[in-house]
Simulated assay, not measured.
Amino acid sequence: MTIQNTSHPIKSPPDELVPSRYAVRIGEIDVLVVSDGVLPLPTKMLGYNADPTEHAAWLDGMFLPPDAFDWALNVVVVRSGDQTILIDAGLGLDPDLNLPRAGQLIKRLEAAGIDLGFVTDVVLTHMHMDHVGGLLVDGVKQRLHPDLRIHVAAAEVKFWESPDFSHVSMPPGFPDALRATAKRFSKEYESQLRLFDDEHEVAPGVVVSRTGGHTPGHSVVRVASGKDRLMFAGDAVFAVGFEHPDWYNGFEHDPEEAARVRVRLLRELAETGELLVATHMPFPSVGHVAVDGDHFRWVPVFWDY
């Protein structure tokens, strides 16, 4: 069953209030954004270097609570030619962190009619647990194609051999969980990793490029076909990053470089007009970037029903 046949469901599964997948056509390439759920995290992680008064004003202006809110978790499935590509793999299950509203990817792929056994490639923007954990859920590896290729920057794999958490601002428990998950993932999927240095074409019109910043091997994925373009920016862009691209995300291992990467990507997106999808933008996270004075502005697309 192809993506285009499954992306506009008649109704959501019984336990879902709203649809959890959204389809976009990029020329001849099918793109499906799938929600892995949400992460309830402290608001102070979103711009922890900001002036507290300015930070509070931004939250209030966005009608967000002052203490914690739900960060979206978006994953993308791309169909190019005879390849089905999963970009990131969601959180999976980590009972120690008590995040029951995340880790929904596997069942939502099933609801979309996407058979894990037909996935030919996985691209990882980076190896934080909310991007690799879905592949560590019990029984998932056995359902994957034995020749599955997992594309990830060599710098990312190297980083997680001895990760540096000295510049992050995470809730307690997260550094240990991130470290343990990355180690387990590298061990279980070592033979299927396909490492690249700076840029790699995964399939016709699907190119992954290392940006660094968020993590040393953090990467974005560009999809191009005909006149259409879309970038999946992973964790390089988050909700406050348009108005305040210099505000740090608590999960950034090199926040200064991450801010520079964010500005560069937003400028590129504003100039080209291509679509943007990002992991932690509100679902379905499909929109454009516009220049707004000295900053940027997020312009969501009109939903296509």
Score class of each variant (00 low, 15 high):
residue 220 V to G: 04
residue 289 V to K: 11
residue 298 W to P: 08
residue 78 V to C: 07
residue 149 R to C: 03
residue 65 P to H: 11
residue 33 V to Q: 07
residue 53 T to I: 14
residue 247 W to N: 08
residue 52 P to G: 09
residue 49 N to R: 10
residue 58 W to I: 12
residue 103 G to V: 10
residue 204 P to G: 12
residue 136 L to R: 05
residue 210 R to E: 08
residue 102 A to T: 06
residue 243 E to G: 15
residue 296 F to M: 10
residue 10 I to G: 10
residue 189 Y to V: 06
residue 135 L to D: 02
residue 273 G to M: 15
residue 66 P to S: 14
residue 289 V to E: 05
residue 49 N to G: 11
residue 19 P to V: 12
residue 45 M to L: 11
residue 98 N to S: 13
residue 130 D to M: 05
residue 182 A to M: 03
residue 31 V to L: 12
residue 75 V to S: 05
residue 277 V to L: 11
residue 15 D to G: 00
residue 6 T to W: 03
residue 141 K to Q: 14
residue 287 G to I: 12
residue 151 H to N: 02
residue 8 H to P: 01
residue 276 L to Q: 10
residue 194 R to M: 00
residue 301 V to T: 12
residue 227 K to A: 15
residue 70 D to R: 14
residue 83 Q to F: 12
residue 252 E to Y: 12
residue 100 P to G: 06
residue 200 H to T: 03
residue 199 E to F: 04
residue 68 A to N: 03
residue 168 V to G: 00
residue 35 S to W: 08
residue 164 D to W: 01
residue 271 E to M: 15
residue 29 I to E: 00
residue 149 R to S: 06
residue 137 V to Y: 02
residue 101 R to A: 06
residue 55 H to L: 14
residue 95 P to W: 07
residue 29 I to Y: 04
residue 125 T to S: 12
residue 202 V to K: 00
residue 14 P to L: 00
residue 211 T to F: 07
residue 176 D to M: 04
residue 303 W to K: 14
residue 63 F to H: 13
residue 199 E to N: 06
residue 5 N to L: 13
residue 13 P to T: 01
residue 266 L to I: 12
residue 292 D to N: 15
residue 292 D to I: 13
residue 88 D to W: 09
residue 122 V to Y: 00
residue 124 L to P: 01
residue 12 S to G: 10
residue 127 M to A: 05
residue 41 L to R: 02
residue 138 D to C: 03
residue 90 G to A: 13
residue 207 V to K: 01
